[in-house]
Amino acid sequence: MERRKFVLSAGALAASGGIALGTGAFSTVEAERDVGVAVSDDSSAYLGIEPGDGPNGNYVDTTDSDALAINLTGDNDNIGSGLAGGEGLNANAVTGIADLFKIQNQGTQEVQLEVAPLAFADADFANFDGVLGVLLVPQIGGVALDYDMSWTPPVNLISLSELSPGDEIDFSLAAFAIPESAVDSVEISDEIEITAEEL
């Protein structure tokens, strides 16, 4: 019983001390707080850019700096582990690849997303040996996403507004190559520019 009384008394003293200190004014406060900033790869950054969830995501590769890259060539690192040896498009054919990659708002506020260009082309004008066309297709026809597509020339881009945190948009690709002589005569090596701006 005596020990219990002593503990209560010590608590009362500490509380009294705290009140007394709190009434005193201060002129400066110096405190240190942690700051953690990381640079993420494309899949986990605030603007997530990552391969599609399905097997067609294997047509997307990464660069040396872990940035996403559409790679429909023999240099795709997924050949042998996801891609069973294919090294390019068929000639005289339309190739459609759904769920190729996706862009997700992993930040805190709505953004307007722009992806450009939409169309890529190459032609062998010297020998008239081939035409290659590659078209990016946003899969927004079947989702409930607020968007505004603008096809006004000459701006070769898609603009999607009001992409809320957590929203994502999947992209497909349609491509064609003609004629048979297009094999090894036409190719595309270009870049896609993805821009997100707060609303």
Binding site: P117, L118, A119, F120, A121, V131, G133, L135, W151, T152, P153, P154, V155, N156, L157, F176
Partner: peptide
């Protein structure tokens, strides 16, 4: 696509 990219396949 042809219009925005200013190409004619």
């Amino acid at each position: 696509y042809e219009a925005v990219a200013d190409v004619d396949f």
